[in-house]
Design a protein around this nucleic acid. Structure first.
Lengths: 347, 347
DNA sequence: CCGCCAATGAGGTACGTGCCTCATGACCTT
DNA sequence: AAGGTCATGAGGCACGTACCTCATTGGCGG
């Protein structure tokens, strides 16, 4: 009888009865269909609030007889973090988890706004209710996001936000806080002060510049004894990062710390290991990947700050589901936490 | 027509057709009902695997016409972490989130095994499918867990495990890793070595002793220059912890670090603040609560290791749902991560 | 007063699974 | 061979919502 402790579930029938209207009208109001006077809408909404009606998600999904289509558009290339994002999507797409949600992954050339825009334009609202994109700030992308919105495809931004667009939500970490945390840790690691080098992918990437800003702010306020070298740009490339780090170590034999706020960590670890300085310098990097794991275990890297791709994907799917069902997609979105990993709490 | 890209959903009807049996038999196999020959079970399972059938969760929940009842039994008292657990339960019980899951919270006297056992014994399988408990190791509790299992109430342990019982899963962090992480951070904070004091709630609590073991292991292996004072037991009480810390600070004016692996952080912060040493000593504590937040912001505490109560509750609900639906409840359970918080990444 | 249109009611089917009853065989026991 | 048990089939109703068609009402302008 669908009850717990003797209380029957509140259904649309109850709403109709209390509001003094027919089932059809309740249905029209609930699903935003036209042809209902404002006064009647009011009556129904009052009744809903009064008896505490909540749409039964299971029944709703069943009746729609249609899956929710979510398309992830992820940058392609050698970036290990993006690969781990894609893996997280696979992982959270196990049938038992994504109830009636059907996911699809598109890989497009990294940092190529036009390609991303084309991919967005190619989405068909019939098979795709929601697009999740990782995008840099680019006018073409912005226009494509707004066009998709007009076609009734909800867009979410992942990792890096696109303010000013019609994107429904941003899912990612607070990169300013990440930079602050790196500075706070390095400051405590070097109580005597010293020289710390900074490496970024590109300062045109919003997440990188945010991290840099946070780092500088904490250093200036709390750890004046620490001097900064850089930032140098490694363009998220392993080989470039490697030569930059090698040059840094050669030029500054007294280097006490290093913060790589971008990618290219394979090169970072390689340069540290071959310099023989690994372990003597406190090193912080971003994103838990094969390279940074190896760095942690081997002692070249002290701390890794992580975005928690699994959490991001889970939230993206939950938000997509919420949006497709007519909600605002915000329910239950604890903000993504910055993961902090040492060798000792590697998962 | 319930399709995406032209592919119809695979239903029980398809399974029956492919297996060459009736719907009723498929149903018996799917729901583990008796009266089916092993050979027939085999046929059905082969068909399921062959055509990739997955039970439609929405339809299943709907057809059961019954909510899933989950009862949380949480220790009562002044422990702030337990209070935050209870809050997390409320938070994740918003109607839109817990689809067809009905939660209930029972508070019982902390560290009172008999009271917990009574609460468990009082659960009725008609309204409760799953119990989630925070328990110490106690024979009475163990017996009550097994009895509940026999009444078809699945039991999950939260925060602290109960090995040897019929509990279906443990949801919580790896406390040995937490202790290792604390040692690893303190070691890096004190490159010159020094004296570090340890405070525990009670060494009879499994989570506390696990943390202690991890801490000692890393210190011995990697930071021999650090000397340990304690552990002293504060019994998770603010007042006791306060006097212990005050005594420590008085007796060891050269104290360089402090790790409280239990509760009672209100006392810890108070003692540090009134000693005038706050900020000069590197301090690590557990659980993000009002007291530890204040410690972080004020500078008395450097790092807080956190269990992430929201994540634990979410997983507990997901697991309960999975169990009630006949699965093993394990799907999608990324292990709970140890949250690491500084002043700079406070959420 | 007639006809038009917007607003609403009435009632049905569908979604996929759970669970129930009843009937029908096949096989076993004595 | 009769009676019993066990495995299976056949069919139907229920869950709560979505969406459809068709009828009915009331108010309006001409």
């Amino acid at each position: 009888m669908n009850e717990i402790a003797g209380r029957r579930r509140v259904t649309v029938h109850d709403v109709a009865r209390v509001a003094g209207v027919s089932l059809a009208t309740v249905d029209r109001v609930l699903n935003g269909r036209p042809g209902v006077r404002a006064a009647t809408v009011e009556k129904v909404e009052t009744a809903i609030a009064e008896i505490g009606f909540h749409r039964d998600l299971s029944a709703s999904l069943l009746a729609r007889a249609r899956d929710i289509g979510v398309t992830f558009i992820i940058p392609d290339g050698s970036n290990a973090f993006m690969a781990s994002l894609a893996e997280a999507i696979e992982r959270w797409t196990a049938p038992a988890l994504t109830d009636r949600v059907h996911t699809q992954i598109l890989r497009v050339k990294a940092l190529d706004g036009a390609a991303l825009a084309r991919a967005l334009d190619g989405l068909d609202a019939k098979t795709c209710d929601c697009a999740v994109i990782v995008a840099g700030e680019d006018p073409a992308v912005l226009a494509a996001v707004d066009a998709a919105s007009r076609r009734d495809i909800a867009v979410l931004t992942l990792v890096s936000d696109l303010p000013g667009s019609q994107r429904r939500h941003f899912i990612g970490i607070d990169n300013v806080a990440a930079g602050r945390t790196a500075a706070s840790l390095l400051g405590r690691f070097l109580p005597q002060g010293g020289k710390v080098a900074l490496i970024a992918g590109s300062l045109h990437l919003r997440d990188h510049s945010d991290r840099l800003a946070g780092f500088h702010a904490v250093l200036a306020a709390e750890f004046p004894a620490i001097a900064v070298v850089g930032p140098l740009e490694g363009h998220d490339e392993a080989s470039q990062t490697e030569s930059i780090v090698a040059a840094l170590l050669a030029e500054h034999p007294d280097l006490a710390g290093l913060y790589n706020l971008g990618a290219g960590n394979t090169g970072l670890v390689k340069a540290l290991d071959s310099s023989g300085q690994a372990g003597a310098i406190r090193v912080i990097a971003h994103e838990l990947t094969a390279a940074t794991r190896q760095g942690l275990v081997g002692g070249a890297i002290d701390v890794v700050l992580d975005q928690n791709p699994d959490g991001e994907i889970r939230q993206a799917i939950a938000a997509a589901r919420g949006l497709a069902l007519g909600g605002n997609g915000l329910s239950g979105n604890a903000p993504i936490e910055i993961g902090i990993f040492l060798r000792d709490n590697l998962r």
